[in-house]
């Protein structure tokens, strides 16, 4: 069940692998940092990283988070459609690649487990970084624990149902 083809190890259970073939100098990474900075500002200013917003969402007391995620998905879908339709190229002239995701049961079990943690911590992995950045030092513990969780998954991966 678990595909352990070593050449493909990075793609295992991951939707977001790096498809770029062009090699860039190191400073190119600053582009991604810039996108991250904007993203972090949005997270704080729209209060998406707030534990309170997550409680509201999972108690159906507020539309806010549904509005955020819903809008993001619609904008993302339209953008991807436009990229495909007009065959837009990357800055370095590459064709944008999309890959289909295959189903495995981890997407059910893992997602349920993550959902439980999401409500408790008030954070998905993105907001964890932003919570630390906004000065909630104690979230470093949550973050280290999340790292440990990822590591333990890697350790037991072959024994887990997929």
């Amino acid at each position: 069940m678990v595909n352990n083809n070593l050449e493909d190890v990075r793609h295992q259970d991951s939707i977001c692998t790096n498809e770029a073939m062009v090699q860039h100098p190191f400073w190119h990474n600053l582009k991604y940092m810039a996108v991250g900075i904007v993203f972090g500002i949005v997270f704080v200013k729209a209060e998406i990283i707030s534990w309170f917003r997550i409680q509201e969402m999972f108690r159906l007391h507020s539309f806010f988070m549904y509005g955020v995620i819903g809008t993001a998905v619609v904008v993302g879908m339209l953008s991807v459609w436009i990229i495909k339709k007009f065959n837009l190229k990357t800055l370095s002239g590459e064709t944008v690649k999309f890959e289909d995701k295959s189903f495995n049961k981890g997407q059910i079990y893992g997602a349920l487990i993550f959902g439980i943690g999401w409500a408790i911590t008030g954070a998905c992995p993105g907001p964890l970084f932003a919570q630390i950045g906004s000065g909630f030092a104690v979230v470093v513990i949550t973050f280290l624990s999340a790292l440990a969780g990822t590591w333990v998954y890697g350790y037991f991966r072959e024994k887990l149902p997929h």
């Binding site: 993550f114 439980i116 998905c124 999340a146 440990a148 990822t150 333990v152």
Partner: peptide, 11 residues
């Protein structure tokens, strides 16, 4: 935090 890290990778 553990559930977030374990669950996201499993999913």
């Amino acid at each position: 935090g553990f559930l977030v890290g374990f669950g996201t990778r499993y999913a």
